[in-house]
Design a protein around this nucleic acid. Structure first.
Lengths: 207, 207
DNA sequence: ATCATAAGCTAATTTGAATTAGCTGTCAAG
DNA sequence: CTTGACAGCTAATTCAAATTAGCTTATGAT
């Protein structure tokens, strides 16, 4: 029992992410796995079924991760404590660490790209994309900023807007790097400046 | 001489934007135009050629528009003057006007969606998308903020970062609405709050 | 008037990719 | 040892979609 079934999903995801479902031929998936096209059908009934399996895994793996985040209660507050305790340096380091992780993690990256190119054909993918890369992060960070505001660690502004202003640049630069990996250097430099400036802008006035 | 040739491009663009090149059949394009598939070939040699023509028009129409913007000298300053003179109300009104224009203009919208779904298959589209929806707007607004900083109208921070913090939320919310038109209301409300908060955050301290 | 061209149609034709048929070797359970 | 499920292969088969052939009609120029 080779992990062929899993290898098929991985190969297919990578290909779907690069070219979109319709432009990928089952023969290419098979090639990538190291078998011939008809052998695929020993593992999945059809090309559609492969796509479906990818989708199912994508969803369950995200749910798993989301559950983990909420595990120790509402964890935005834990992050918030770190955020407020930490020096700007720490903050930059964690923020950018997350960015480069998401950027380079093959699985996350491929999921993101596949959702991007298939979003208008499959309402379910549209939902997932919005949830994973917009609504959930925004809600999480909004909670965090709300807490930091109430604490007095940051100035008190609408936390939804703060979350948007903090997160949207990250989101935009991530999309940009997905399109142009060669621009990573330039982009991370800008991202760092963003985080520093954000924290200085919203910092409680000291002077 | 009906404008059939043009109608074909329009219909094809709309379809490509919705489903992506490979999922659109020439018969569907023909249907949308009101003719039969083989008749398409009286106007274009192939499906690819239709795609090429769309691309060419997309590029030239953007260049035209960009040229128009630069016409009366460097126009970021004109905008900047307005930005500084205007009340927050005015600013909100113009900002949101632009957002809803881009959101609803069929041509812009379809181009954006087509570039989005084809970006990883065609490096040229990736370039265009980045230029039109990232680099150019950022450069423009950066110039504007630089000017406003030097003028004393706004606090002086890195203008590239200000541009990013102003524009990225707009960009992100636009993508969101492209995916979920029904969320337009909620999204424009957030956008408005963003613009107000941005201008208040970066306003010269008054107290 | 006539002819060339443009723009449409229906009925092939071609092509390319998914899927099915049917065979083979491996290996674990009985 | 042998049998059956598993996972692979090659060689069909099927099917859908792009493209071509060849006919028709309208129209504008000679």
């Amino acid at each position: 029992m080779g992990g062929t079934k899993k290898k098929i999903l991985d190969a297919a995801l990578a290909l779907f992410a690069e070219r979109g479902y319709a432009n990928v031929y089952v023969a290419q998936i098979a090639d990538a796995v190291g078998i011939k096209a008809p052998s695929l059908y020993k593992h999945y009934k059809s090309k559609q079924e492969i796509f479906g399996a990818i989708l199912a895994e994508l969803k369950s793996s995200y749910d798993r991760q989301a559950a983990a985040l909420r595990m120790n209660g509402n964890d935005a507050m834990a992050d918030a404590r770190m955020f407020s305790a930490a020096s700007e340096e720490e903050l930059v380091k964690t923020g950018m660490g997350l960015f480069t992780f998401f950027l380079h993690d093959d699985y996350a990256r491929n999921c993101r790209r596949m959702m991007t190119v298939e979003q208008f054909r499959d309402p379910e993918l549209a939902q997932l994309l919005s949830r994973q890369y917009a609504d959930d992060p925004l809600a999480y960070q909004s909670a965090m900023f709300a807490y930091l505001g109430s604490t007095g660690a940051l100035r008190q502004y609408d936390p939804d807007v703060m979350a948007l202003q903090f997160y949207a640049p990250i989101h935009m630069l991530l999309s940009l790097c997905d399109r142009h990996p060669e621009r990573e250097g330039e982009v991370t430099a800008l991202l760092e400046k963003h985080i520093r400036q954000f924290s200085s802008i919203y910092a409680k006035e000291v002077r």
